[in-house]
Nucleic acid binder design. Structure first.
Lengths: 144, 144
DNA sequence: ATAAACCCTCGAGTGTACTCGAGGGAAAGT
DNA sequence: ACTTTCCCTCGAGTACACTCGAGGGTTTAT
């Protein structure tokens, strides 16, 4: 089964522009061209592209994805290097997930205040305290 | 307790440049200035800045954070609006966490291959299959 | 055979979030 | 007094990942 670029765009959700951009950035060195210069994708290409999307969707930079793809093109001798790259990336993902969850806590605290039946009082208290602090230091009160 | 910009940079991990940029983008309308035009931060300001960082670290755009801060400046009457904004953002965070985890699976599958004792064989098999597919379709084999 | 729907490259433009340097003033230490 | 260290604004530059239009060739359906 062969695919042209618009089919691949439909399958992956990437735009045609993005696919061409990825190719230009060296992410798709395995994609063949027909006599007219059109890109021709195989199922194997789609499989590789799927991996590229996994890397991209987890925040890997284009340059690093290119490095990974270069390894793939070079065959089994780069397995150890690929493993290190993916392992490092995996750790980064988990670390980032953790910081996001930590920051989500701060958001949830605010939500808890806004959802509290005494929300208006709670907000007014914080506001008053902040205003007092400003005035006590001879600063203008930005909360009118 | 009052802080100058370098103290705040040290406390938050944001650069001085970034803090000034945030101010310019309307994220810090509550920060006062002294006679010389220097920014003067209070503890209350730091508290608000912490919330800003939570929003930023979870991927909220500057424009949306500004909108939230504008609400905060307007007092309790915007509580319902703030709640909707944060709630929507919360859902986005969770949705993104989910897609990241889904994509992580694709990465873990690759890692499992690379860590398999037969990794070389497995990689060579995939490679041979992809090459065969190319040749069967009259395309050049990019895997030499 | 001709129109519609594809494809290509190239170069420029967009959006987002910083990041920096120049030019100049203010504050703190010696 | 003077040097260091801090602060300011403004405008330009950077990094990243697209996104698009122009100009031009190809394929497919009628």
């Amino acid at each position: 089964m062969l695919y042209q670029i618009k089919d691949v765009a439909a399958k992956t959700g990437l735009s045609i522009y993005t696919l061409r951009y990825y190719d230009q950035q060296g992410l798709l060195p395995f994609v063949a061209r027909n006599a007219a210069g059109y890109r021709v994708f195989t199922d194997g290409d789609l499989h590789l592209l799927h991996t590229i999307c996994c890397l991209k969707n987890t925040g890997m930079k284009i340059a690093d994805i290119r490095s990974y793809i270069e390894d793939v093109m070079q065959g089994p001798k780069t397995i150890a290097h690929r493993e290190r790259l993916l392992q490092r990336h995996r750790q980064q993902i988990l670390a980032q997930q953790a910081t996001i969850m930590a920051n989500l806590k701060g958001i949830d605290e605010k939500l808890a205040i806004y959802r509290n039946p005494q929300a208006i009082d709670l907000v007014n208290q914080e506001r008053a305290a902040a205003a007092t602090e400003k005035v006590a230091n001879g600063l203008p009160n930005p909360f009118e």
